[in-house]
Structures are given as C-alpha cells and as structure tokens.
C-alpha cells in the first residue's frame, strides 16, 4: 500500500505526476505551510520531514556524546533538585541559583495532547484543525526525542483519558506513538488535570511533561496541577495552540457563536467587538504565560498557520533552557 492511498497504476501518467511531491521530501519541511505539508503525506512521513528539515536548520549536531557540560545558571525555583544548587554562589553572594547542564543522558518525556472538541476545529477550511496541527507537532517532537534515544510517551485526553502510551525508547515506540496520535478525536469536554497527573506518574524520575492544548479551560486547576508536576521534579513545557480566527475573531456578519464543548451561545457582531475581543485574548494569553512562569513551566504559543518549525524551535529553545537534551 502506498502512502495516502495513492493509486499504484504505473500507466496513469497524470496520477504519477501527482505522486512526485509525496515521494520527494521537501528539504526544509519545517518551514513549509503546515496544511500544504500535511496534505503531502500521513503523520509519520510528515513528522520525519519536519525533523529532518529542523535538524538541517540547526547548526549544532544532535549527537553530543555522553559528557556532562555546564551550560548556565538560572534562579532556583521550588522543586529544583538541591544537588544542582550552586553552593559557592550561595555562600559568596547569597544568591540561590542552580547549575544547568547540556547533558546527553537519556531522559523521559511525556507528551500530553488535548483532544477535546474545541481542538478539532479550524477557522478556515484550508487550514489544519488545531488537533491535526498539534498531532503533527507532537509527532515531530517525539521523533526528535526518540532519535536521541530518549524515552517518549503520549497521553491523549479530553474530558477523560483517551489513550496512554507509556514512555519508552525501544524500537517500535515511534510507530506506537504515531498510531496513538493518529487516532480519532475524542469527546466533548476538556479536563487536563487527570491527564497531567497520569503523565507525571508515568515519568518516574525527573523528566519532561509537554502539554499541547488550546487551553480553553479554567486556568487555575491546570496551573495547580502543573505546580504539582513541577514539584515532582519534572520540567513542564506548554504549547498553546490557537487558530488565527480565535486570536483575531472571525470576519462576517452578526452571528450566534456557539462553543462546541459547552454549547453556550453568544450573539455578536464581529466588526463591533473585534478590537475588544483581541484585547481580551491578549490578556488571557498573558495571564497563561504569567501563571505558568510562576510555577516554573515554560510557555510557547503556536498559531495553526505557522510552519511546524516555528513552535518546534520555540519548544526546543524552552526545553534547552530547562536542560532538556534536545539539539
């Protein structure tokens, strides 16, 4: 079976031309339009192209050996391992900082994907849904980690846990992850707290928990749960996925806007409310960023019209600050 269910008739020259883009991976897939890229192949293939393109764009080698190299200091935060506290600086300057290392030891990462109804939405038919975008993103991230022999697992959740793939670095894990990520979307509501708890539980020693969600939930329980995750010694990265229409508000005449999860309806005229709505969204995003930083979690925003390389780079940069052994 050929990818994407393309016909295998070699005599059909018209269709043969159509197969060419699929069979020839773009050199910098991480910088291409995500919806165009996703149309070229299924998740596994696209994730490979994105990772290959992403690594091509990096100037540093992903293979760094097993040495432990000091990288930088950062302020101490509750939950940090006291072993990495720089006692000399504490004694000399009364400043509490921890040492960070670019270590290449195997680590464990759990990817938590919000598959609620709100994620399965796009503001434009030619754009990927937030869920499809997040699946491709996480696929690329998982592949990147697995190539470094890190253990990676996935938790998919909406109002309950939908699927769990425990972290592993063994061969075949990539296909299990890809299969899990490719599953159909789940139920209506969003409850990220059990998913985060499950993810933290599955990463036994300090590792990474990556949450990918549109965060259309009450912030307090999620941030509180992330505080608990951080307290267990895990680094937390949050990738906030938004459709541009959610940030800017859709164009058009007056309409009744209905939440697919709660069913709540609000009548509004876009032209009247757009500027105020955008300000509300800006404040909400800022509130998430501040709240997450306060519990020591890293935050990155991804719009579904951005090439996959941009949020992937933001994640890697955020992970790098936390000592995540990527690139």
């Amino acid at each position: 079976m050929r990818p994407n269910g393309l016909p295998s008739d070699p005599l059909d020259s018209t269709l043969r031309y159509a197969t060419i883009p699929v069979l020839m991976p773009p050199s910098r897939a991480d910088l291409l339009d995500p919806s165009a890229l996703a149309a070229l192949g299924h998740l596994e293939l696209v994730a490979r192209w994105v990772v290959d393109g992403f690594l091509t764009g990096l100037h540093r080698s992903p293979r760094k050996g097993f040495s432990v190299e000091f990288a930088e200091h950062r302020p101490y935060q509750p939950g940090d391992d006291l072993r990495y506290l720089d006692w000399r600086i504490a004694a000399r300057a009364d400043r509490w900082v921890v040492k960070q290392f670019e270590e290449e030891t195997n680590t464990r990462a759990m990817l938590v994907l919000d598959v609620s109804a709100s994620m399965n939405w796009t503001g434009l038919s030619t754009r990927l849904t937030k869920l499809a975008y997040a699946e491709h993103m996480l696929g690329a991230l998982a592949l990147l980690l697995l190539r470094q022999r890190d253990a990676v697992g996935v938790v998919r959740a909406d109002d309950s846990l939908r699927s769990v793939v425990p972290p592993s670095s063994r061969s075949g894990q990539w296909f299990r992850l890809a299969a899990s990520l490719s599953q159909a979307a789940g139920g209506a509501g969003s409850d990220l707290v059990p998913a985060l708890a499950q993810a933290a539980h599955l990463v036994r020693r300090p590792g990474f928990v990556v949450l990918v969600s549109d965060l259309l939930v009450d912030p307090a329980p999620v941030i509180e749960q992330l505080r608990t995750v951080r307290a267990r010694g895990h680094e937390v990265l949050v990738l906030h996925v938004l459709d541009p229409a959610e940030r800017d508000f859709p164009e058009g005449a007056e309409a009744v806007f209905t939440d697919p999860e709660s069913g709540i309806s609000v009548p509004a005229t876009p032209s009247e409310i757009r500027a105020e709505y955008q300000e509300t969204v800006r404040q909400a995003l800022e509130s998430w960023r501040t709240g997450l930083l306060q519990v020591g979690a890293r935050y990155a925003l991804a719009m579904t019209d951005q090439p996959f390389g941009q949020p992937l780079r933001a994640l890697v940069r955020a992970a790098g600050r936390g000592g995540m052994p990527i690139a």
């Binding site: 859709p250 309409a255 806007f257 209905t258 939440d259 409310i273 105020e276």
Partner: peptide, 24 residues
C-alpha cells in the same frame, strides 16, 4: 430586529467572547 440573528457559527473560544461581552 438586529438581535434576531439566525446565523450560527461554531466557535470554541466563546469564553473569550463572553468575557469581552461582560467587560464591555
């Protein structure tokens, strides 16, 4: 009559819309 709107649009970020309505 403008309140009798018949066009319905699915929009997940209704919580932001509600907050905007509340504040403004």
């Amino acid at each position: 009559l403008r309140r009798r709107v018949t066009r319905r649009v699915e929009f997940p970020a209704v919580r932001f819309l509600m907050q905007t309505e509340r504040e403004h």
